[in-house]
Nucleic acid binder design. Structure first.
Lengths: 203, 203
DNA sequence: TTCGTCATGTAAGAAGTTACATGATTTC
DNA sequence: GAAATCATGTAACTTCTTACATGACGAA
């Protein structure tokens, strides 16, 4: 008997999970990922369609042709076996190493090579980026709330995590800037090197 | 004249930055990455050695053979051109999209597919993982402090960011658990489903 | 009629990891 | 004398992205 149950990869589970949450076509899956978990994981079209084929072959989803007009479309629903496979994956005790991949943090790490102004600018970029992310995440909150009303409360949790940790990053940026100004003041520069709107308020 | 200055990739800049911070051999670079920025970026040996060759060819680092006993070793120092190239990269206005890649968050996102106990366990895993990361990061704090004493204060900043956002994640986990218990209580379960040490304290 | 969106698919290439290969030195 | 660490290098593989190709539909 040929073993056809070599472990699925992460993209396939992501696709499976999205179908469970109601995404029907490959196109909808992509959209749903962009509107939700994109913050923690991405997937490209070139991964989605082969994943769907694989899931169908394994009987974890059922697909049927459901064109809109003459526009071809294949829609999918999760099967009982699919639900089981998803639960198995979710419950599997496997290492989940936390690994971020953020080039901005790498640049910040090396920022001592820059002069004061450029380093400040970089820090500002990072801070604004987090502010922008919070706005983006705020925009998807209604969708998460909607999911919660239908019994899926965990999307709301991951959304909050995203927001919380950008808030945390902003706070660290602010603290760091304030400390820098203090240092400068201590070194005898009564007015810290010009940086936009930060006045030298007395303690 | 042949253009040999096609943009360097991120691994090469990472290597360059680490040499600037005092890493001498390929081996030391790997170690230094693991002991510092690993939290935000990783690099494998198979990337380091070719990067070093490239940097040498471009005149951004200088290498010389400096064996320890009979154990061969090549040590590197950054050149003026290397410093300039690093600063150019750091200061370059280029998009730095924030993209995390954390399978644990994906699992949590889909956790509504699990039963209560399993979902709780997953949430617990995520929380403990962050606690462990904080410990790991705490261990590298002395090194960051040392770097700060030598005029490199930004490693300390990125370290703090790592800690801050794991603290934020832990907080969100705790809040979510507390809310879950409240919900359960509201639904008439005076004692929330058994979860270790969480007593049903009156408000 | 042109642009944006819905919809699917793949080929080529870039990027990254794992595993192996080699060999010296230090520590237990 | 075995195991861990120092040190360098690469081949094979996996994974992922980018870019292209195709075509229908709706709105401006």
């Amino acid at each position: 008997m040929q073993r056809d149950d070599a472990r699925l990869g992460e993209p396939a589970y992501l696709v499976l999970g999205m179908i469970r949450l109601g995404a029907r076509s490959g196109y909808e899956i992509k959209q749903m990922v962009e509107a939700s978990i994109r913050f923690f994981w991405t997937i490209s079209q070139a991964q989605i369609y082969p994943s769907l084929e694989l899931l169908k072959k394994r009987g974890l989803v059922e697909g049927k042709s459901e064109p809109l007009g003459k526009r071809r479309r294949q829609t999918f629903v999760i099967t009982a076996a699919g639900e089981a496979a998803l639960r198995d994956w979710l419950g599997r005790a496997e290492p989940m190493p936390f690994e971020l991949r953020d080039i901005a943090m790498v640049k910040l790490f090396f920022a001592d090579a820059l002069d004061r102004n450029q380093a400040d600018a970089l820090l500002g970029d990072v801070e604004r980026r987090s502010q922008a992310q919070i706005v983006t995440l705020g925009a998807i909150e209604p969708a998460a709330r909607g999911a919660a009303d239908h019994g899926n409360v965990y999307p709301m949790l991951t959304l909050r995590m995203g927001m919380a940790f950008h808030r945390a990053m902003i706070e660290v940026c602010e603290t760091f800037k304030a400390e820098g100004d203090q240092e400068a003041a201590k070194r005898g520069l009564l007015f810290p090197p010009h940086r936009g709107e930060v006045p030298a308020k007395p303690g």
